[in-house]
Design a protein around this nucleic acid. Structure first.
Lengths: 222, 222
DNA sequence: TGCAAATGCGACCGCGCGGTCATATGACCG
DNA sequence: CGGTCATATGACCGCGCGGTCGCATTTGCA
């Protein structure tokens, strides 16, 4: 947890630090990321940073578990209540994609915790984040099971499958769509403008169709 | 590329080095992994290692693009020719799972390259590996499209979806199944015995069903 | 205005890393 | 036996890191 001093900081200074930290941690894994760099780029002496956070992990943890989720919640806003379960799922996916496209660094921040690492605390953080995401998705899917739209055979496995699809899977598809590397997208505002809301809707639709009907050809399904 | 000296090494010494390298690179990201550690654990002076490989990246690249694929090919063996496309896909998935379970370190080695990193060469390596995997899977799926078993609307996106499912997705499911963390599985032979061939078949079947039919409830499908 | 508490600050520390190099060793050969 | 060449070895280098510490500066209050 940051110290009170941190929260008492002039907003401009605090923002500078936080933004540089987000940039650093979105481009590099926890281990690779350098507190010295963050401080240097934010023009804040390293000694001061250690007055705001206990250590590197403290800053990382706060970003990952407090600040990023807060900003995401702010962006996503209240979910519009759709009638149909599949429409609801589609919206859920589209909102996730919108966040990825509009705030790629924040999205990457969480994904970067997936890196295989020997730092056990980071692994713990990642697991917690994953579990939270899974729980959220599971709740969505449970509604579908309740309304009879979704097969109910194994909700846990289904949740994991869907989660993988709309997480790493969609990221992959989007990058291919943009024809760019992740690091280029992070650096460029221009690239991501090419995945506008209309295109995102289409991709979300395609994803939902896959989840609902699979890839088996119509005529031949057993 | 390793030097000729490396290939002329007494087998026992070479194996020691390679094995320790696999362990190190499967537990840590490229940046986190330490050549000094590998050398120390293999009881080979660091100076000697630099007689076998140009640098850390050279060793990593060789492991990732030569040695691991070679061992995987050896393990998987020739694909038994099934008649039905879906049976073929199921076998493809089951073999992949078997490799993951029997050689978790080798499997992790490749996955570890997915780590977000600022080291551009590592990103290049990862992209090459992914593309190779995607091409292989695409070929499998293309057969399904040709035989009329698979929807042919967008083979590229489909390939990416399926790839994500049987890659990170199945890994997740398996870890949940084993009730263990990745690092525990790497360390323990015991754990992975619990995912025997019969259980793997079942999981592969479940995955194929999902890919073929999706999650939509039977009665309500449009 | 003066003092104490909070904060800013940057030089400094120890560490482990990737990588180098001068020298030692020993196999092979005329 | 002497000389050559491939190989083995570990002390050593420079670097950037995470983190510390003591002093300078500012702030808030009586």
């Amino acid at each position: 947890m940051p110290t009170n001093t941190f929260f008492r900081l002039p907003e401009e200074r605090r923002e500078r630090l936080v933004n540089e930290a987000i940039i650093e941690f979105s481009e590099r894994s926890y281990t690779e990321a350098s507190l010295s760099q963050i401080a240097r780029r934010a023009s804040i002496p390293k000694g001061s940073v250690y007055q705001y956070f206990e250590d590197k992990l403290d800053l990382y943890r706060w970003l990952l578990t407090e600040e990023a989720p807060r900003r995401k919640r702010e962006f996503i806003g209240a979910a519009p209540r759709e009638e149909d379960f599949w429409a609801r799922l589609e919206t859920f996916i589209e909102r996730g994609m919108a966040f990825l496209v509009e705030h790629p660094r924040l999205a990457r921040l969480s994904a970067s915790a997936a890196a295989p690492t020997a730092v056990v605390e980071v692994r713990g953080l990642y697991k917690a984040i994953c579990d939270a995401g899974l729980a959220e998705l599971r709740a969505v899917l449970a509604e579908g099971a309740a309304s009879g739209d979704l097969k109910t055979s194994d909700l846990d496995v289904a949740t994991r499958f869907v989660s993988t699809l709309i997480g790493p899977g969609l990221t992959d598809v989007i990058l291919q769509e943009l024809g760019a590397e992740l690091h280029e997208v992070l650096a460029s505002d221009n690239l991501r403008k090419r995945l506008n809301s209309r295109r995102r809707r289409a991709l979300a639709q395609q994803t939902v169709l896959f989840i609902r009907d699979g890839l088996g050809a119509e005529g031949k399904r057993k």
